[in-house]
Design a protein around this nucleic acid. Structure first.
Length: 315
DNA sequence: AAGACGAAAGTGGTTGA
DNA sequence: TCAACAACTTTCGTCTT
């Protein structure tokens, strides 16, 4: 009966934080991401007898903005139905069908296509439903404001998804969006900026910490290393090392250092690849982190000894 | 041979006149 | 609208393990 209570496989703690808006369950004690693709199948009401069941159960799909008509439209039969009708009924049917077609305007047709594309891309990226819904809403607004004209539908979809991810603090890199949607990275960036500006969507600069769980699990690093990286990032933010820098680069460097400290070394190339930055960037951030946060002592003692020896040989 | 390191030149975006 | 600028990338050579 306690299906809902899970133990953290790493430290055994049962103090888990469920982050629904991110679709993640996180252990409060060690920071391990236990499940990152959760779906809530439960019903939010209770029923005690058939009378209550009749009142409280609802049928039909939930209303959602991911359907182009919010799941509410009616369609007037299909053409195969017409052969079961005769005479007057047939005329009436035809008339109704015509009206229905007039109601679906160009906007709705566009939305229908766009939302299909949006679903395709988001399922490829395994994005939580809340992000998809938000993205649909943004796209709907964009279409109604006529912002899609002159741009490809796909690029606008990618742009709105990028914006929605940022808003929900589950950032994906532009590169990831680019490979998922097949749209050029620059193009996505352009439409993203255009759409958010025109619609007045305020988006905070993304926090490097938000990237850590994904990068860390892609590199198969321990939860310990991941929380170490969080710690490093927090210190780095206090020292103002993060402003103006690409958040992915900082996240990658923090993870790299944390891995070194915990003797789970990953090469700069490995880290760079999952973070979508170059080794050079990691090196630069990494140097800054070591200098400003005095992390040298935490690295292997052999390194420290060596630098002491080499000081004698300097000129 | 692979990884780490750093210099130099190039790219795309932002800012301020 | 243009030039200066910062961050990041690409490329390449050198050093270390």
């Amino acid at each position: 009966m306690s299906d809902y209570i899970k133990k953290c496989p790493d430290c055994g703690s049962i103090k888990l934080i469920s982050k629904k808006e991110r679709g993640e369950i996180i252990c409060r004690d060690c920071g391990l991401v236990i499940e990152d693709k959760m779906i809530d199948f439960g019903q939010e009401w209770r029923e005690f007898d058939s009378d209550q069941a009749g009142k409280r159960r609802r049928t039909g799909a939930p209303m959602t903005v991911t359907k182009f008509d919010r799941g509410l439209s009616t369609s007037v039969g299909t053409d195969s139905d017409i052969y079961r009708l005769g005479g007057k009924s047939k005329d009436k049917y035809k008339r109704l069908q015509k009206w229905q077609q007039r109601i679906s305007t160009a906007i709705e047709r566009n939305l229908k296509l766009a939302l299909a594309e949006l679903k395709r891309v988001s399922s490829y990226l395994k994005l939580p439903a809340s992000v998809v819904e938000d993205s649909s809403e943004i796209y709907r607004n964009a279409v109604q404001r006529g912002l899609v004209r002159g741009r490809s539908m796909e690029s606008v979809v990618a742009g709105t998804l990028y914006a929605a991810c940022r808003r929900h603090e589950v950032p994906r890199t532009l590169d990831e969006l680019a490979t998922a949607s097949g749209i050029d990275k620059k193009e996505i960036g352009r439409t993203y900026r255009f759409i958010t500006r025109e619609l007045g969507i305020r988006i905070l600069p993304s926090n490097p910490v938000d990237y850590l769980p994904r990068f860390s699990s892609a590199l198969k690093l321990s939860a310990k290393t991941q929380s170490k990286a969080v710690e490093i990032l927090e210190k780095a933010q206090e020292e103002e090392l993060t402003s103006g820098r690409g958040p992915t680069g900082i996240a990658a460097a923090a993870l790299y250092v944390a891995a070194l400290i915990n003797t789970e070394k990953r090469t700069q190339r490995e880290v760079a690849d999952v973070a979508g930055v170059t080794e050079v960037t990691i090196r630069n951030r990494y140097k800054e982190l070591l200098k400003e946060l005095k992390l040298e002592e935490e690295l292997k003692p052999t390194v420290v000894v060596k630098t002491e020896e080499t000081t004698e040989t300097e000129e």
